[in-house]
Design a binder for these strands. Structure first.
Lengths: 346, 346
DNA sequence: GATCGATGTGATATCGATAACATACCTAAC
DNA sequence: GTTAGGTATGTTATCGATATCACATCGATC
């Protein structure tokens, strides 16, 4: 049985649409229509129904509804970390863009590993999202296959993947870091160092490093000094440790570029702690334009990325793909803007 | 009709359990069992089924499953902001604790308003979560009613609500701020200032302010100077602006306490920019022990809160309540730890 | 006044899984 | 040899909503 045929009042069972219908003296179908925007239900009936809804404290059950309508109203998004304000901004952009559409976000984080990404993708696909937003272009083969057989639109963000799945909203991390190098080279710096994480888990980090190395080459400068320190994402603290290691090995380094503002901030604070003057003794730059970079003293030169905009645009594209159905599934690529923000640290 | 009776191979329709069953030559029920841990299916059958699952790229549809099993596998959590590393840590704690249970998190953020919280609660209840974690104890009446008729366990976090709904995992923000005042008073500071947001949207902020005022009174010190600046959460930048305003009005302020480390950091940087020595000319303390407070120079004295632990414990409690059913629905309160972290800024 | 279309509402089938019960087969115990 | 009990699998009903079609009512048009 499970449930009494006629639910006693006061019983602690969440009411169903049938309960509302009975109370309002209409059919369940009419209740369903009344609760859906843009359906034609007479004013009088709608009021009766709404009264019943309020009295019972009824809330629509979307899991049931999505089964018959074949639309779950979910969108999945997977980011490396939610503790990183850049990705949190992207997640916020996605949520904000979804808000007006009634779609709900399923958010997950990978801790920067494709294995966890694969597990997350599978877990999310069990919820039958109507579309999915990923960070970056590195995925396991199985993840790609799962996405393919799911048959839902995919938007990759934050990078320009070599092998895009569907659409892309991102920028070239390589180019952006290259631009930072060139900007500083123009100011006269010649001996560059780079601080980043050790493994290649963080593809954006690797791309930035490549952009660094390549730009140095192109400019014909002395080879860049690379310090790898810690598993990505590298923290403020690790940034500090890394700059120590850098200065020990190459004391004459003129400008240190960091994979992110957090490590740059760590490096900056460590230098100040050691009595070094920034930028006179050493210049420091970061990536991401975190709030801390703008307001610390001295302010940190960095690359501003439109994190929030990436989220909004990715969601906007995804919604279009969902709404538009199978047409226009072309592999479009949307380039998002970035710009160098020069501050006192360089 | 909707779907062809016998799906053509290659058709872009996600396969269902029936498709898998047919291919494996078993019934759908057996497939269901094979995909669920701890069900008895013979090794041979399981292998056949798994092969079919892989060939088809089948992924279980939980929306359908949860309808009949009456368990959605969702847990909802609502935080003020995901861009705040304290709450992001709590969200991470929740996710990590849920991971092994197969429950999935529905995360939403309120932007510090109870109105958005109410809307979020309703949106989440539509997904029939098995439990819900809220931040703080301030909710609209309708939100309370919705939660009540949903009949699911609720855990409130980060505060000690006057009128708890179910269980609570948190600490007294008032007491914690009071302790910070007393710690600094013991070091000899007497003229205290407080920087926080303007409205009372942020209940934790208000509680901290009350704790500040009360502690000053108890210690018999000169009345605290209060500067309210900006809508919560107040940013690094606003912290800087607030300290300027504070010093203009009360130039002899000895120690400035801030509602969070972000505003404290902003205040600190602004003071340094103005050539003031911290803590000699002015002491600064924050709240929350954000990473920036530990690694900036000078390090910021603050109150360390076990954000991640709050998330884990709240999730742990919620899981117990979900598993335990209706029993032990007592209003328990779990106090989480906090401690003063003294650094160079005071 | 008959016909038509618009509008409001109801009846029924259905979405894709699982719960609950039924059944077939096998082994062990008497 | 018969029975009890366990294991593996199948059958049917069902979860709570919505799609779809059917039907009733009403006013406008000819």
């Amino acid at each position: 049985m499970g449930r009494a045929a006629s639910p006693r009042p006061g019983e602690n069972q969440a009411p169903t649409m049938a309960d509302v219908a009975e109370r309002a003296g209409v059919s369940a179908m009419t209740v369903s229509r009344a609760l859906k925007e843009g359906s034609r239900v007479s004013q009088a009936t709608r009021e009766k129904i709404m009264a019943a809804v309020n009295e019972l404290g009824y809330v629509l059950d979307q899991s049931a509804g999505s089964l018959s309508s074949r639309k779950t109203g979910f969108v999945a998004a997977i980011v490396p970390s939610i503790n990183n304000s850049n990705f949190a901004d992207t997640a916020r952009g996605i949520t904000d863009e979804l808000e007006s559409t009634g779609l709900q976000l399923l958010l997950g984080y990978t801790d920067y590993t494709v294995e966890k990404e694969e597990r997350l993708i599978e877990a999310m696909l069990r919820r039958r999202p109507e579309g999915i937003i990923l960070t970056g272009g590195a995925h396991t083969d199985r993840a790609r296959r799962l996405l393919e057989s799911a048959g839902i639109p995919v938007v990759e963000t934050w990078e320009l993947p070599a092998k895009p799945i569907d659409q892309v909203v991102g920028f070239s991390n390589e180019e952006a870091m290259g631009l930072l190098v060139k900007t500083l080279a123009r100011k006269g710096y010649r001996k560059f160092g780079y601080i980043g994480g050790t493994t290649s888990r963080d593809t954006r980090g690797s791309q930035r490093r490549e952009g660094f190395v390549r730009a140095i080459e192109e400019l014909g400068l002395p080879p860049g000094r690379l310090v790898s320190f810690g598993v990505p994402p590298i923290s403020i603290e690790q940034g500090g440790q890394a700059v120590v290691s850098m200065l020990k090995r190459w004391p004459d380094t003129e400008a240190v570029l960091c994979v992110s503002d957090l490590s740059a901030f760590g490096a900056l604070m460590e230098c100040k702690r050691r009595g070094m003057r920034v930028p006179q003794d050493i210049a420091i730059a970061g990536f991401g334009d975190y709030e801390v970079a703008a307001f610390c003293h001295p302010g940190i030169t960095t690359v501003n990325v439109d994190c929030y905009g990436i989220g909004r645009e990715a969601a906007r594209r995804l919604i279009q793909l969902i709404r538009g159905g199978e047409k226009q599934r072309g592999q479009e690529i949307v380039l998002t803007s970035y710009r160098i923000v020069e501050r006192e640290s360089t």
